[in-house]
């Protein structure tokens, strides 16, 4: 069986916001080390990988592998019934077909209990190799969100060029073109806004902006985002969750003309 408790329901709400535009239904794979999700979007262009480590919950108990097939639209409906500051406990039995969710107000004078129907989901699991990327850029997640939003006014594609000088995002469309360059910043007072670049070799990649805009739904989860890139392979866009795990998105590039 599974029992996992989070001090704030807000976290699960935010995680759901971060993936529900991409994925409609997926398995939450629970085992003794934590809860993992891997799912592709319906067009098989992007993949989301989520990890919530057991030690991020208090308490956490799961004694065997338990795949929980969840429709995210349905889960979202139930999570709307939770207060952001509520203590959240999820429970599932080994052979059950429901997920129990308990929302408890901080002073414990209001307890609400919901059951979400689970489903059998036959999903393909992909092996993601450990990759040494040619360019790894760490930047403000809010800045990344703004760049994606701004350049989506110009085009539905974005070109990312990384050199040792900086990272340049550019778009070209019917109205004209635009670009935003962030220079590597060594001496920024506010650490959250610094841009750091680890570069083995320069990269230039083109992506669909629509997916980046889905990814930036994860912005409330972390002040930083890390973009890992090599030419002609999927970009990894990672938001780290404090003491809990991560949300990673992989997006296949556009190639050639």
């Amino acid at each position: 069986m599974l029992e996992a408790r989070l001090p704030q329901a807000k976290l699960l709400k935010s995680l759901l916001e971060a993936i529900k535009e991409l994925v409609v239904e997926c398995n939450f794979d629970c085992n003794d080390s934590g809860i993992a999700v891997q799912a592709m979007d319906s067009s098989h262009v992007a993949l989301v990988a989520l990890l919530l480590r057991a030690d991020g919950f208090d308490p956490y108990r799961c004694d065997r592998n338990l795949p929980l097939g969840i429709n995210l639209t349905s889960l979202n409906k139930i999570l709307k019934c939770a207060g952001n500051e509520d203590i959240l406990t999820i429970k599932a039995s080994d052979d059950g077909d429901v997920l129990n969710l308990v929302f408890e107000s901080k002073d414990s004078d209001r307890i609400s209990e919901y059951e979400l129907k689970l489903m059998d989901i036959d999903s393909e699991h992909l092996g993601i190799p450990d990759t040494q990327y040619d360019a790894v850029v760490s930047m403000s997640s809010g800045e990344f969100q703004r760049i994606c939003r701004d350049l989506s006014q110009i085009s539905d594609s974005i070109v990312i060029d990384v050199t040792k000088e900086g990272i340049k995002f550019s778009a070209s469309g019917e109205v004209g073109n635009g670009s935003v360059t962030l220079k590597q910043s060594g001496s920024v007072d506010r650490e959250d806004e610094a841009t750091t670049i680890e570069l083995q070799q320069a990269v230039s990649l083109t992506f669909s902006l629509k997916y980046f805009q889905y990814f930036t739904k994860a912005t409330p989860l972390s002040s930083r985002v890390v973009l890992s890139m090599s030419n002609d392979v999927p970009i990894l866009v990672e938001y780290k969750l404090d003491n809990l795990g991560y949300v990673r998105y992989y997006l296949a590039p556009k190639i050639g003309d």
């Binding site: 592709m40 067009s43 098989h44 262009v45 992007a46 993949l47 393909e124 699991h125 992909l126 092996g127 993601i128 190799p129 085009s155 594609s157 070109v159 070209s172 083109t206 669909s208 392979v233 999927p234 992989y250 997006l251 296949a252 590039p253 556009k254 190639i255 050639g256 003309d257």
Partner: peptide
């Protein structure tokens, strides 16, 4: 610009 590739052409099923 360019042809959109599929993610599952890069990662193999396990």
């Amino acid at each position: 610009i360019g042809t959109q590739r599929s993610i599952d052409t890069f990662f193999d099923p396990t």
